[in-house]
Design a protein around this nucleic acid. Structure first.
Lengths: 192, 192
DNA sequence: GACAAAATAAACAAAAAATGTCAGAGCTTC
DNA sequence: GAAGCTCTGACATTTTTTGTTTATTTTGTC
């Protein structure tokens, strides 16, 4: 659910769009489907968004905003390095697993990726920055053992997650792999 | 899965169509979707079926053929009257629950009903006939206590199941109600 | 209640997608 | 290599979707 939008109409559109994409897939969803779901006429939707692509882009943007916030919170948490990392990765991952689990999740992700490459890249970069900052701080405190700089490792983490996402066959499979990866990296960072 | 068809191509089409209907819903499924899924070109599909409606009708027909066969087998089984009835109703019901559970199951059933009323009615009548014959036989053997003729009761059973289907919100809900109904009727028929 | 301003929908032309058909390409079988 | 198949690419037609414009309704203000 999206509530972070100033305009409630826009929120209605975004929610309806997400619903419709999940139900019918991006290709099969018409502006009318979205309008109906948002309880307004089609032209009213055009008053807010130029076209379907603009809606996808906004959805993607919201998605990353949320994810960045969640990961930031997780990284501020307390616990062992390994536990914190696991929490952060879980936070970053949760949303995707939900999307993947929906009937047309895979197609949705594809559409997202192809129509909002820039937003995706920005978002991923932002996430990498969060991890890097956290790693640098933990390193300074002597709580982790870094191979290479924090940026390197942060990028490795986010890119790996991307790989898992791209090759996931379904939601559960994805979650298992993510959990495994978090364990591995957590252990790898541990000071002995 | 459909294998009862002479022509393997037709089976491929029917299976692909069922898949597509369940995935996208009837309205959103195009002949091309069906063709792709069946591994052939769109015109090839038209060689077998006149249009989408014809495919739905054939699917419906197969469905009822299967169901009639299953119910007939169940009614020939051994056990108490109540148990046999429960088995039969379960056999009749199983398929529907699966359909209802699919992403666009409800819309599919709607399309089926509106495009192949005649087939549906025939199928329901055939099922009622099976129950009636069985009831008559059990009655002759003194194993059930009938109020009214076997036809009356058979029709009551099938119509009731139809009611449950029409008002079902999701698959599990439907199965629960069916199970409850089977118990009730089974008990009602019992000789004391 | 009358007036502007904003919000909404009905209606329209343009574009895109889906449909149904057919001539011809490829593949077997004789 | 001809006859009989099945299949596909390409086509005209219909239907759906899109983006916009125009008219109507609603809202708040005086």
């Amino acid at each position: 659910m999206i509530e972070l939008t100033a305009d409630p109409k826009q929120a209605a559109i975004l929610n309806s769009a997400f619903q419709a994409f999940a139900n019918y897939g991006f290709r099969k969803t018409s502006m009318d489907d979205i309008a109906k779901g948002a309880g307004m006429s089609r032209p009213a939707v055009y008053l807010h968004y130029k076209n379907k692509e603009a809606i996808v882009r906004e959805l993607t943007q919201h998605y990353y905003t949320q994810k960045v916030a969640d990961v930031a919170v997780a990284l501020k948490g307390s616990g062992s390095v390994s536990e914190i990392l696991k929490q952060a990765i879980r936070a970053q991952t949760e949303g995707i697993a939900t999307v993947l689990a929906s009937p047309h999740g895979v197609e949705m992700l594809d559409a997202t990726k192809s129509m909002s490459t820039d937003i995706v890249e920005n978002g991923e970069a932002e996430l990498a920055r969060l991890y890097a900052a956290w790693l640098a701080k933990e390193d300074a405190a002597g709580r982790v053992r870094l191979f290479g700089g924090p940026d390197e490792i942060a990028t490795t983490i986010t890119r790996s997650l991307k790989g898992l996402k791209l090759t996931a066959t379904h939601g559960d499979d994805y979650e298992n792999r993510v959990s495994r990866l978090a364990d591995l990296i957590g252990a790898g960072l541990q000071v002995r």
